[in-house]
């Protein structure tokens, strides 16, 4: 049903691609992160909530959007989207043709974050899963525990008259951590890249607390003790000077490992991820009932070997999705930051 080609995941029967990394005629998009939603295709199909984000990031194109569990037929292939729980609008893609069912997970997480829609297990014969955190060392703490850590960290910074700069991916993590931040303060600022996404989502009707954009005019006085949300690339830029004295905390699944947290040279690391952890991956794979599993981007060799040993037919697949989430984040955010440069310096 799906072939792995050098342009991306291709469905020959329906003649369309899912999350292609090269321009194609017809692209189905799981979610709006840049390694999955790329520019240049002639038409795009995505979830309603992904649509405004694609418009923001890819500009005007031929778009079609659908809701979850609303099947569309493309050349006889029955296609439907199902919540993936990764970020707002993120979807799994279910394909059915001649009685055979395949599901591509896109990126997903199994813990419900209250924003992205709860991950829905979808029964299928063949499941294509991501494996960003496909090692058992990646077993997340419950999100409330991490939110509490973040809240306490902010309070501690406030008691030292420091601004808390939280580094979070501008789409997804930045909105998610607002819950932890709002528990402490309403004095929230954002980098332009974060603010743009925030504004787009608010306009699309997502209930998010109000935040303010950091501009050259923002008075330093107001920033004291505030929380500033910024994308990964911003942490090392002169843009940060304005917040002195400040402390930097990074919210990323990679912070699970101390060495990784120390290498990023920040004051605090919070292992908060929008990807499934090891138990989440196994639970999701199990729930599909699939006999055949293809494992994409991440620790694909470890996860597929483990699944094989568990009696499933599993194989690794090379894709161009998030080879290393951090690097993709960096690339993308650097792009955005350079656009913003005149305004932020």
């Amino acid at each position: 049903m799906i072939r792995f080609t050098d342009k991306g995941l291709y469905c020959p029967a329906g003649n369309f691609y899912i999350d292609p990394w090269q321009p194609v005629e017809r692209a189905v998009i799981t979610h709006a992160h840049s390694d999955h939603a790329r520019a240049g295709s002639a038409s795009y199909l995505c979830h309603h909530l992904t649509l405004p984000l694609l418009q923001l990031r890819l500009g005007n194109n031929h778009y079609q959007s659908v809701g979850w569990n609303e099947p569309v037929f493309i050349n006889g292939v029955r296609l439907s989207l199902h919540p993936a729980g990764h970020i707002i609008g993120s979807s799994q893609v279910r394909l059915e043709h001649n009685g055979e069912v395949w599901v591509f997970s896109g990126d997903y997480k199994t813990e419900h974050d209250g924003l992205s829609g709860a991950f829905e297990p979808v029964r299928c014969h063949t499941f294509i899963t991501e494996s960003t955190f496909g090692l058992p060392i990646y077993t997340w703490k419950p999100q409330q525990v991490i939110y509490d850590d973040i809240s306490n960290w902010i309070r501690n910074n406030q008691s030292h008259q420091k601004t808390s700069v939280l580094i979070a991916y501008s789409l997804g993590k930045a909105q998610r951590i607002l819950e932890a931040v709002s528990a402490v303060t309403g004095n929230i600022y954002a980098h332009g890249a974060v603010y743009n996404v925030h504004e787009t989502l608010q306009q699309a009707g997502i209930p998010l607390p109000d935040i303010r954009r950091v501009t050259p005019e923002t008075p330093r006085e107001q920033l004291k003790g505030s929380v500033v949300i910024a994308p990964p690339g911003a942490a090392e830029s002169p843009w940060m000077k304005k917040f002195t004295p400040y402390a930097v905390g990074v919210c990323s699944g990679w912070m699970q490992v101390r060495g990784h947290a120390r290498r990023s040279n920040v004051d605090a690391g919070f292992a908060l991820s929008d990807h499934a952890d090891w138990p989440g991956l196994l639970q999701a794979i199990n729930a599909t009932g699939a006999q055949k599993v293809f494992v994409t981007h991440g620790f694909q060799s470890a996860l597929s070997r483990y699944l094989n040993e568990q009696g499933l037919e599993a194989a690794e697949v090379k894709t161009e999705y998030g080879n290393d989430e951090e690097i993709t984040e960096l690339k993308e955010e650097n792009g955005i930051i350079s656009e913003q440069a005149p305004e932020t310096t």
Partner: peptide, 18 residues
């Protein structure tokens, strides 16, 4: 799989703790 984890973490004590 334990060894794969160890190579990623780079520290035995931490690997076990995780």
């Amino acid at each position: 799989l334990f060894e794969e984890c160890y190579h990623t973490v780079g520290d035995l004590g931490e690997t076990i703790a995780l």
